Amino acid sequence: MQTNFDRRRHPVRMDLAAKSYEGQVAADRFVEGEKYRVSADRLEFRPQPRQDISIDTEGLFGEKITVYEQTPEGWAWGQLETDGYVGWFSSDAIQKAEKPTHRVTALRTFLYPAPELKMPPLSLLSIGSLVSVAGEAETRGLQYAVLADGSAIVAKHLVPLGHTDADWVASAEALLGTPYLWGGRSSLGLDCSALVQLAAQTGGILLPRDSDMQEAEAGTEIPFDNVSSLIRGDLLFWKGHVGIITAPNQLLHANGHTMTVAYEELDKAVARIAATEWGAITKARRLG
């Protein structure tokens, strides 16, 4: 039996595991899991069912989750379909919902109780959130997408699920100034690998969540001995960190130095990071 499953990617515990792992791992019981969607603006995932520890990542409104356990204390344990991340989260922030048809492409957009921008909004949704559009409406010349429950979103802030942008790096650049948040995965706050993941998604490129996963799996490995040869969209990795090349000698990254998504001259960033716990560059990769 295999015993070295990464807890972030495999719904496997000693007492409980997903049914699909039966025969691969020893567990007290195996369950199929139930399908839900995130009903909160953002859903925090934690490694344990405790509020006093840092988050691993976030699920976004409308994303699908397979739930394997719910506790009387209001916790649930499950796996996010978007990137396969496993963790503990609030069971109050999930619900059964319609299959999404559209993705939020604006950095942020309000969900209104009706197609009327003067009404108090219900939610503030981040880029990457998913919604199911049931109809259309127009109010004073502004087009809205209407959801099944009658709530509405400004239509130009959405794209169909299959839509892709030719320049995904531009989506990363649009997040310039976004606060750095460890484990954050929204336009209200995000970390280095979430910046890469959310932006790449707009170009139809699905990436794993954390920087070590991206370093091992994203695109194709390329040489980095001469950083001046790197081109727009190349990813540069350090131990526990990733940034995006946007132009010659220019790095865009969500970082704890400025505590924002920021540009930094690449040569200066390399020297600065080398003097920290993150050390030297470890890898470069190019997305296809």
Rank of each mutant, 00 (worst) to 15 (best):
K19R: 12
K19Q: 15
S20C: 10
Y21G: 00
E22P: 01
G23V: 05
G23F: 12
V25Y: 11
A27M: 10
A27C: 04
R29T: 04
F30C: 08
V31Y: 04
V31G: 04
G33V: 00
G33S: 04
K35F: 06
Y36P: 00
D41L: 03
R42D: 11
L43A: 10
L43M: 09
E44Y: 13
E44W: 11
F45M: 07
P47D: 07
P47L: 08
P47E: 14
I55K: 15
D56W: 13
T57M: 14
T57E: 14
E58P: 05
L60N: 01
G62K: 03
E63F: 06
V67E: 05
Y68I: 08
E69M: 08
E73I: 06
W77F: 09
L80S: 04
L80K: 03
E81Q: 11
D83G: 02
G84R: 03
Y85L: 05
V86H: 02
V86N: 01
S90T: 03
D92V: 01
A93R: 15
A97Y: 09
A97V: 08
T101D: 07
T101K: 06
V104A: 05
T105Q: 13
L107V: 05
L107A: 01
L107N: 06
R108A: 14
F110S: 11
L111Q: 14
P115L: 08
P115K: 06
L117D: 12
M119S: 14
P120M: 06
P121D: 07
L122S: 10
S123H: 12
L124T: 10
L125I: 00
S126V: 00
G128T: 10
S129D: 10
V131Q: 10
V133R: 11
E136R: 15
A137L: 05
R140G: 14
G141M: 08
G141V: 09
L142C: 04
Q143A: 11
A145Y: 02
L147E: 09
